[in-house]
Nucleic acid binder design. Structure first.
Length: 881
DNA sequence: GAGCACTGC
């Protein structure tokens, strides 16, 4: 046994011993090396996102509002932002509050503010003249905001002075004091309505947020520079406050423009918008709104719009200069999503064409300087966060089996540490379910042998049904008897708990240092998931999860040396780990012609770009010079991979557009088939009911048609349950289908289908599939079960989930999955004739290397020629008769 | 005879 096993045994015996000894001793401290307390750096989530789960996707914005209100637990106001300061105000802070309180607006002094700005030479910023320029616009827009008694007096006399609140705010020359005064009421400066008492309660806590102290500093930098990098840690209040600071200085309502704030996730956009609407005392959808796929909760009145980064990118396609916006804030930029990176590159170019546009990049700490230099040495402002200290422990030796080590650590915490919940990070569903079982077993033993408190173990991962995800918010169990060992809960989670989801009450984090990450191999054009070491940034984010409610501890199951030397600083940006053909098409559509010289923060490897361009060229979305074709323009209108978009656009030619529309939607949502470990056989039997002999695509279509039948629609939930189908995925497919259909109608693409009874009904669909997926085709290798992919020559097997029974020489696949073996998932049998006929450029025989694929194609060509040859001379004869 | 980190339009 090596040293590590020794230390494992050591830990085990220690755990048992503590039972008889003082239960307060900390067995971990003996095993683990303590590092100096670290202030966790992490993304800001003061928006209060509790759960990234499924929510109803309403058909219209109005319905959206209703659904959202009915749904519980989606929008949660975090404790930090509720009516009290849970960290206690320092005496300095309290003094400041009192001062602020004392300096409540005095209607008779309001004119003094105006004087302070009088020295401005620009007549527009002259408070006495400004209304002449701005009033009209204000009236026209219907803004009736006014903020203090001075205005009211004027208001009574002529009704035009509502504008003078804003007239006294010279654009890009305001100060924190001016904004504060307006915020102090009594009327809402944006809506003109009297401010509620709840507003003032929230206002007090808002002014305790760390960002508030640097409001003037922020404004100074914002005003003088087109780009600004803002760094705020957890709890600084950046996501909610900075956009509001900007509203007072940028005055988008006067400009007929908007301030946009992007988020990588939908739920964040929704919940932050709701929060800020409350803070500003307006209805969600009025002055403050949000825009995400399937849901636009904004109106004519909206001046602050939270939105997903993907949504802003889509808007940029039709408005290359983003003309609607006066300021764009990219939040959570450190996450480096495909959309954020694309937007950053785009905004850098747009900024040159639009000197009036301001851009604020908000990020957690680590990458700040890179953002700064990328944006032409933009000024940087950093604001500290507000979290509790987290003690970090490392293992003295590397762990061989991180799952085993994590389970042991969790149990040691439970046996020896004071009250507080545990969060363990593992990599995937199987690993998590397995660990949960083992922890449960061992915990029972611990309770029997050592009188430990009850331990509730919950798994957490993205594909878990929402109801089960909710369970993680159940309170920890109570001690078995009063005064007994504390009960606690232990959540075993994927990375979802690192960014998307926040659980209060976590005091102990166990971090084995791994996560599943997407990697892309441009050579064989395959994306796959690989368990890899996390980055330092991730490790810090994970640790930070322990310090949200009170001081916590983080147990890293790797050595301190490994943390320092082996972990990358930050996670590899998604741009470098993905197939970018979809992004390349987007970039072309937003007007970026020269992709090679496009200034991305991390340009992808040349081979990745070449592959993407090549793929788009084969799909006829780009011509040989790399210019967007008509088809390419159409394809970019769809929120789909180019392959799927091209297939959908081509579908009318094959008389099956309704069917391809359904299939495209089904292929854009998570797996519709459910196969619980406990009922695999029954699930397979149910799937067999829908099976089509020609493959999985047609099987999925059968499922969809059955789902839409009256019988299923009578009780969809029951029907899906009975047939082992995912209601969530099917409903999602319905929404996607509806959106795609609207785009087809808008683009005047015909929806034509052959009747179901037509003999070519299914053949048409299979041929239409070829129109998109001709690059994802494999050919059977002799008599063995293996296939080889066309052109990339990868040896592959059919995924066991396929319904395809008979041997098919050629098949088309939706997905290449790289796990224990190379698998093709979701396949449909096709014919070589179709490939040659529908994708002649790709199947140009001269471009193939020697081999079975080429030989077989050649035989098919010969066969076709022979047929034509016999038909050719035959035809005149028949005509002659 | 297997597995789906997480997002987004």
């Amino acid at each position: 046994m090596d040293r590590r096993s020794d230390s494992q045994e050591h830990g085990r015996s220690k755990r048992r011993k503590t039972a008889d000894m003082d239960s307060r001793t900390d067995p971990l401290l003996a095993d683990m090396k303590e590092a100096p307390p670290e202030s966790p750096e992490s993304s800001d989530d003061e928006g209060g996102v509790k759960l990234e789960g499924y929510y109803d996707r309403p058909a219209t914005p109005t319905q959206g509002k209703r659904v959202k209100q009915e749904k519980k637990n989606v929008i949660v106001i975090p404790e930090t932002l509720q009516g009290h300061d849970r960290f206690g105000s320092s005496s300095k802070k309290r003094q400041r509050e009192e001062e602020e309180h004392d300096s409540k607006p005095n209607p008779y002094l309001a004119h003094q503010d105006e004087k302070s700005t009088k020295e401005e030479s620009d007549p527009k910023s002259n408070p006495y003249l400004a209304h002449m320029y701005e009033e009209e616009e204000v009236e026209e827009q219907g803004y009736n905001g006014y903020s203090n008694g001075y205005g009211k007096a004027l208001n009574r006399t002529n009704g035009i002075s509502k504008a003078s609140t804003w007239a006294r705010f010279p654009r890009h020359k305001t100060t924190a004091a001016m904004a504060k005064k307006a915020e102090d009421g009594p009327n809402n400066p944006f809506s003109g309505k009297p401010l509620s008492s709840q507003y003032f309660n929230i206002l007090r806590t808002r002014r305790n947020l760390p960002v508030h102290q640097q409001r003037d500093e922020f404004l100074g930098l914002y005003q003088k520079s087109q780009f600004l990098v803002f760094v705020g840690e957890t709890g600084s209040g950046k996501t909610t406050q900075i956009p509001q600071f900007i509203l007072f200085d940028d005055k988008p309502h006067i400009q007929h423009k908007l301030v946009a704030c992007t988020q990588p996730r939908r739920v964040a956009a929704m919940s932050v918008a709701q929060r800020v609407a409350n803070e500003m005392d307006v209805n969600l959808g009025d002055e403050v709104g949000y825009s995400i796929r399937f849901e636009d909760v904004t109106s004519q009145k909206t001046i602050l719009k939270y939105m997903t980064d993907g949504m802003l990118l889509r808007e940029a396609m039709h408005d290359n200069n983003l003309q609607r916006y006066s300021t764009i804030i990219l939040d959570e930029a450190h996450e480096r999503t495909l959309a954020t990176d694309t937007l950053m590159g785009l905004l850098k170019e747009v900024a040159q064409r639009r000197p009036d546009l301001k851009i604020v990049i908000m990020s957690a700490t680590l990458d700040a300087q890179r953002f700064q230099s990328y944006f032409n040495d933009a000024p940087l402002l950093a604001v500290p966060g507000r979290t509790h200290p987290v003690q970090i422990f490392y293992t003295p030796e590397p762990e061989r089996d991180y799952v085993e080590a994590s389970i042991r650590t969790v149990l040691q915490i439970h046996a020896g540490e004071p009250e507080g919940d545990i969060l363990l990070f593992l990599t995937g569903e199987e690993e998590i379910e397995d660990a949960c079982r083992k922890i449960n077993l061992e915990a029972d033993e611990l309770v029997r042998e050592a009188d430990a408190g009850p331990l509730k173990v919950y798994p957490l991962y993205g594909t878990l049904p929402p109801q089960q995800q909710q369970r993680i918010f159940d309170p920890a169990p109570a001690p078995r008897k009063p005064g007994g060992a504390p009960g606690r809960k232990c959540i075993v989670s994927t990375n979802i708990a690192e960014t998307s989801l926040t659980i209060d009450g976590i005091v102990y984090v166990v971090d084995p240092g791994f996560s599943k990450q997407k990697v892309y191999n441009p050579r064989i054009r395959v994306e796959s998931l690989i368990v890899s070491p996390i980055s330092k940034a991730s490790a810090q984010q994970r640790a930070g999860r322990a310090g949200r409610t009170r001081p916590g501890k983080c147990f890293r199951l790797y050595t301190e040396a490994a943390f320092k030397k082996e972990l990358n600083e930050t996670t590899y940006p998604e741009f470098l780990r993905s197939n970018i053909s979809s992004t390349v098409l987007d970039l072309k559509k937003v007007g970026i012609d020269d992709l090679v010289h496009f200034d991305l923060m991390d340009p992808p490897p040349p081979e990745t770009l070449i592959r993407a361009l090549e793929e788009l060229n084969y799909l006829a979305c780009l011509d040989d010079d790399g210019n967007l074709t008509h088809l390419g323009k159409l394809a970019s209108e769809f929120p789909l991979d180019p392959t799927l978009a091209v297939m959908l656009i081509s579908s009318p030619e094959f008389y099956c557009s309704n069917e391809i529309l359904s299939l495209t939607a089904l292929l854009s949502v998570p797996q519709i088939f459910v196969r619980p470990a406990s009922a695999r056989k029954r699930a397979d039997e149910m799937k067999a009911l829908f099976a089509h002999p020609d493959g999985d695509h047609l099987t999925m279509l059968n499922v969809y048609h059955a789902f839409k039948s009256a019988e299923a629609q009578a009780n969809p939930k029951q029907w899906c349950h009975d047939h082992f189908l995912s209601l969530r995925a099917l409903q999602s497919a319905d929404s996607v289908r509806q959106q795609l259909r609207q785009i087809m109608e808008r683009e005047e693409l015909e929806l034509v289908s052959a009747p179901f009874e037509h003999k070519d009904y299914y053949t048409n669909i299979r041929r239409a599939l070829v129109a998109g997926f001709f690059m994802q085709v494999a050919k059977k290798e002799g008599s063995s079960k293996t296939y080889v992919t066309v052109k990339d020559n990868q040896n592959v097997l059919l995924h066991p989930s396929t319904v395809l029974q008979q041997e098919s020489e050629w098949l088309l696949y939706n997905e290449f999955v790289l796990t224990t073996k190379n698998y093709l998932r979701t396949v449909t049998s096709v014919k070589a004739e179709w490939l040659l006929d529908i994708a002649p450029t790709y199947y140009d025989i001269t471009t193939f290397g020697k081999g079975e694929v080429k030989n077989s194609l050649q035989r098919t060509i010969n066969k076709i020629r022979r047929k034509e040859a016999t038909k050719g001379p035959g035809r005149p004869k028949t005509n002659a008769h």
